[in-house]
Design a protein around this nucleic acid. Sequence first.
DNA 1: AAGATACGAACGATCGTTAGTTCGTATTGC
DNA 2: GCAATACGAACTAACGATCGTTCGTATCTT
Lengths: 212, 212
Amino acid sequence: MFEGQPAEIASNTIIGNGRRAQIARLATELFHRKGYAATSMRELASVSGIEAPSLYNHFSSKETLLHEICFGMADAFVSTAQRISAMDLSVTDRLALAIKEHLRLLFSDREAVGVFVHEWRHLSDPSLQAFKTLRLDYEQFFARLFQEGMNQGVFVQGDPLWLGRQLLLLMNGSMHSAIRPDAEALIPLAQRFLDLWLYGIAHSTSAPNQTH
Amino acid sequence: MFEGQPAEIASNTIIGNGRRAQIARLATELFHRKGYAATSMRELASVSGIEAPSLYNHFSSKETLLHEICFGMADAFVSTAQRISAMDLSVTDRLALAIKEHLRLLFSDREAVGVFVHEWRHLSDPSLQAFKTLRLDYEQFFARLFQEGMNQGVFVQGDPLWLGRQLLLLMNGSMHSAIRPDAEALIPLAQRFLDLWLYGIAHSTSAPNQTH
DNA sequence: AAGATACGAACGATCGTTAGTTCGTATTGC
DNA sequence: GCAATACGAACTAACGATCGTTCGTATCTT
């Protein structure tokens, strides 16, 4: 009758106390460390302390695990972007906030972000398209910020989508750095990114030569 | 003076006219598009127009293919860095040249770079350690540039290795952008990176607030 | 003649997954 | 209160497919 509708949408966040969430966490770590394709269900079962077929009492397939991880992160990013977009702040302040919140999400679950960033391509096609759409939404959120800043004359001209993607690359990549900032260390890190992005590394004594 | 020289790039990766090089190229494209672990020897054989066992007349194992791709790129990057290090140029000019040459290598073989960046972790242990060493060499080349600039007072203070890795992330990630620049379009792209890196996106009217 | 290159057959291992079953615990009917 | 029942979560066995790879052999080129 209603079998088209998944009985339970499940908490899109991977966090939880149940066995299911516990396995999802272990899967996240494995997918992050070894890659999705190079991780077997038997290995996941092994670190979970059960046998491989028992995993299917919790997840209907290997790809379901990947799906939940990727979309869990994507939803978190997109909803954060929507929240910031609705705020009545200056462009620069919204950019600063977006950087801070992105970094916060990033370091709140490095493994999940790693999977989100690198393993999404192993999704198959209905999910794959949906994922790409969500990711583009998020990139365009940053692009709109840059565009707005250009229109107001506070940012130099440039391709806003290019800038957005570059900024995201930069932040996502910063995960690989050794230090795992706690809640307090996050603010200086965000400031570091914002300063680098806004002002560059050149001392202002040497005058900019903006010829593009 | 050093600007005009080798117009030909001398592509890093396995070039050649032989069947072996042809297969290596197809492997590079497959590893790039689907990932090393998700690419089977039978699939590689199929796109090569032969059967899977015939591949072993050219390569002794699947990992040999990965090894050649990864180390081919790594050697190209490191030797370019050594060449630039030996030049008698200002720090900023060497940084500009390093960016330009890195981008040139990057876009000379996007697929190989993609494998170099993402698939190296599937190497096994003697090769894996050697690869990490090479990559650190290259990162430290940029770190030394930044450190030198800081010592001379032309760059603001910061963690040089962090900056080096961030710059590399930024450039490597730029591969994903849609446009594939030709030899001429490379210079503006490099300039774009340099400007972004040196001066940021803020108009200089808004004064920098460097407090780190 | 001989090396390079291709083939078909097949090996053992591992893959994701299904099926059938057991066991313990919670929920229900009386 | 207590047996009957339903269910979550684990197990063993095993399926068909695919994995990387080896072997022996045939064919082409030089």
